[in-house]
């Protein structure tokens, strides 16, 4: 293909020069689009193409070692999960994980953001150190918490024991429900900074005058929070919620590191099930179907959020 580059190059550079000499008003839309083609092509190849291919795979009986759809089973890959108890259990578990972890993150994030916004002594330090948990890769974070929860050497046992809250070391990860909540705790620690920083940035744009005016009108601290701050924060909360909900619903890595889905499948979420189906059992077809089901669920949740929280600004 070297010849094509060789002959096309002069035309390419001539056009660039011609284009750059034109003033903004002389440039046409189609010329602009031409320069977008390379970027669009890259986006198509690395984003759209795999999605389309996965969609095709989800209708076929495909094994991982030969990822070419030859034998189509159409909706069988989707239907087989409808009657699968493991699937529904993992959906509920994922919903619980998402609801509790995002809920906790929002409450804690708002509290931390408000704290920083009040600019107490050392607030710059708090804001800078907030970034640390968020900057740690999830895998590393998982490994840290796996050690914290360790039954024989874990820091959690040592802490609770020295405080006198437990009389002997506990095996934290041997109970399904406890394990799920402990994974949530690890996830919250990791993700609270993200929400806190977004909300803190939004809080700092709220003019002080608005709150001062309401104080003059006699609003107490709760009224100021619920009637002024929260409504003004709504767009920022929406962004944080959508991003975190989608992330939490797809949770995989932190579970893989801390519990490997155990004990007794007690922490198997829908993404973990997709991993088992695709890579452990090698059924790429039904694994693809599962990943499309995840996409469908997250899309619905994002739409619900937008419906509830997004209100176009109108003059009342």
């Amino acid at each position: 293909m070297g010849w094509a580059i060789y002959y096309a190059q002069p035309i390419f550079w001539r056009t660039i020069v011609k284009f750059s000499k034109k003033s903004l008003s002389q440039q046409t839309e189609s010329e602009g689009m031409t320069f977008l083609y390379p970027a669009l092509l890259v986006i198509f190849v690395i984003t759209a193409l795999p999605v389309i291919f996965t969609f095709v795979l989800s209708f076929a009986d495909v094994q991982i070692f030969d990822p070419i759809p030859r034998h189509f089973v159409w909706f069988d890959n989707y239907l087989k999960f409808i009657n699968d108890q493991t699937f529904w259990q993992s959906i509920w578990r994922t919903a619980y994980f998402t609801f509790v972890s995002v809920g906790l993150e929002l409450v804690l994030g708002l509290a931390i953001a408000s704290l920083i916004n009040a600019k107490p002594f050392g607030w710059q330090f708090i804001r800078a150190s907030l970034i640390i948990p968020w900057a740690i890769p999830t895998i590393v974070n998982g490994a840290i918490w796996r050690w914290i929860y360790n039954a024989d050497y874990g820091a959690l046992n040592a802490l609770l024991y020295s405080l006198g809250l437990i009389d002997k070391y506990q095996v934290w990860l041997s109970n399904s429900f406890v394990s799920l909540n402990l994974v949530i705790l690890a996830d919250v620690w990791h993700s609270v900074p993200f929400i806190a920083l977004i909300l803190q940035a939004a809080l700092s744009t709220i003019p002080v005058e608005v709150e001062e005016a309401s104080m003059v009108d006699g609003a107490n601290v709760w009224q100021r929070f619920f009637r002024i701050r929260l409504p003004l924060l709504r767009p920022a909360i929406l962004v944080a919620l959508v991003v975190r909900t989608v992330e939490a619903f797809r949770v995989f890595d932190i579970i893989y590191v801390i519990t490997q889905g155990g004990p007794a499948f007690g922490t198997v979420t829908i993404s973990y099930l997709t991993y088992l189906e695709s890579f452990k059992y090698g059924r790429l077809g039904s694994g693809s179907a599962l990943s499309f089901l995840i996409s469908a669920f997250t899309l619905v949740m994002a739409l619900v959020y937008i419906r509830i929280l997004y209100k176009p600004e109108t003059v009342e």
Partner: peptide, 14 residues
């Protein structure tokens, strides 16, 4: 020109 651009891009990718 647009056709040429596409040819160039494909050539580079290939």
């Amino acid at each position: 020109f647009r056709f040429t651009m596409l040819v160039v891009i494909f050539a580079m990718v290939l």
